[in-house]
């Protein structure tokens, strides 16, 4: 089946999520969406707009908080033939679900020797800005990717977001999808695909290779835009599936360019980007790898510190130019990215 543009007009990341989920609920009556606030007037930042009226309050429904037990509830539904999606307004709350996600969901297929599968999905949204602080900002894709039996997807673009959700249940694997609040207004053209893109190539070039995750993809695109004005080009990959890594195209690119920058939206100890680096070096790459990610601290609330906590378009640009041995003057302040600068709460 060929890939078909969903629309010639760019749509936002939030709209792409809504359309992908809507397709799931239209095509399969066993798909259910639940979690705290999913049917409230804000409709999870609009990504579930009108779902209760369209699909019924038995298929999109509010719940008690009880994140731990409602994860087990979803596992029970999934074992019984349904395809539930549990929604969390912040990724940080997934820590309350870890027993069920790791001890239970991830082992369903293995411990039952394939008799049961667990097509259960979790949607979690990582926050940033307006003082999200230490407990409304974390992204745990590396931690969850350490668990065999769990699939972890971190879409960065509208195209990735749509195809993540529209193909969510093509496989019966318990899945954690980590969205990013700062990406919700990002626009892009969406193409209908027949599987979740494990990795996307966003631009092509010859001078270096860059792999980014989550909101760092947007920051990287800004850095690369400036880089192109200096006549450098880059193979830019956005990693979506951080659990089963599909790295052949990155390896091929790395061997050609000899320079790889990995930009994570997470802490770097025991991280997926270090796994990528290890993969490259154990598969014949002998060039240079540079890695950027969260500062080694909890996320601070103070704006001035928060800006230092994350990699930025500026620090990504600096990382690229260092690898490219660029020693001429260049812009020292790409500024705070607009979605961060302009974001106001209250949540």
């Amino acid at each position: 089946m060929p890939n078909i543009p969903l629309s010639s007009e760019p749509i936002t990341y939030a709209e792409a999520i809504r359309l992908g989920l809507e397709k799931q609920l239209i095509t399969d009556p066993r798909v259910l969406v639940y979690g705290l606030g999913v049917d409230d007037p804000k409709a999870m930042y609009g990504t579930l707009q009108d779902f209760p009226s369209k699909f019924g309050s038995n298929r999109c429904f509010d719940t008690p908080l009880s994140e731990d037990s409602l994860t087990g509830y979803g596992i029970g539904l999934a074992i019984s033939g349904f395809k539930p999606i549990h929604v969390h307004q912040r990724t940080d709350f997934l820590l309350l679900c870890c027993n069920q996600l790791i001890n239970m969901a991830a082992g369903v297929k293995y411990i039952s020797n394939g008799r049961h599968t667990c097509p259960f999905a979790v949607r979690a949204i990582t926050g940033r800005s307006w003082g999200q602080g230490a407990q409304h900002s974390q992204s745990f894709h590396s931690m969850f990717s350490n668990i065999p039996g769990l699939r972890v997807l971190v879409p960065s673009t509208p195209d990735e977001a749509y195809n993540t959700y529209s193909n969510l249940f093509n496989v019966d694997i318990p899945t954690v999808v980590i969205e990013h609040r700062m990406l919700y207004a990002t626009k892009g053209v969406v193409t209908e695909r027949t599987c979740v893109p494990g990795i996307s190539q966003l631009s092509s070039g010859t001078d270096m290779t860059l792999v980014s995750i989550s909101h760092m993809t947007l920051e990287s695109q800004r850095a690369l835009k400036y880089l192109s004005s200096l006549n450098f080009s880059c193979n830019h990959f956005s990693l979506v599936d951080t659990s089963v890594l599909q790295l052949q195209s990155v390896l091929d690119s790395a061997k050609l360019t000899g320079k790889v920058l990995l930009v994570d939206h997470g802490w770097l100890n025991s991280s997926v980007v270090h796994t990528i680096s290890s993969y490259l070096y154990t598969h014949g790459f002998n060039g240079v790898v540079k890695i950027l990610g969260y500062a080694d601290s909890p996320c601070p609330t103070a704006k001035s510190l928060e800006n230092l906590f994350y990699p930025s378009a500026q620090s990504i640009l600096a990382g690229c130019l260092e690898m490219l041995n660029y020693d001429k003057p260049y812009v020292k302040d790409l500024g705070i990215s607009p979605e961060i600068l302009n974001f106001k709460g209250p949540f």
């Binding site: 038995n58 731990d68 037990s69 409602l70 994860t71 087990g72 509830y73 979803g74 596992i75 029970g76 539904l77 999934a78 074992i79 019984s80 033939g81 349904f82 539930p84 027993n99 069920q100 001890n103 239970m104 369903v108 411990i111 039952s112 049961h116």
Partner: peptide, 25 residues
């Protein structure tokens, strides 16, 4: 009889989903 858990109490939340599937079907 679904496989059992060695983590105390962990099967109880799973039974909720199974019961809801029965309620629905």
């Amino acid at each position: 009889m679904i496989w059992t858990s060695a983590i105390v109490g962990s099967g109880v939340p799973v039974s909720l989903g199974i019961a809801d599937s029965l309620k629905r079907t």
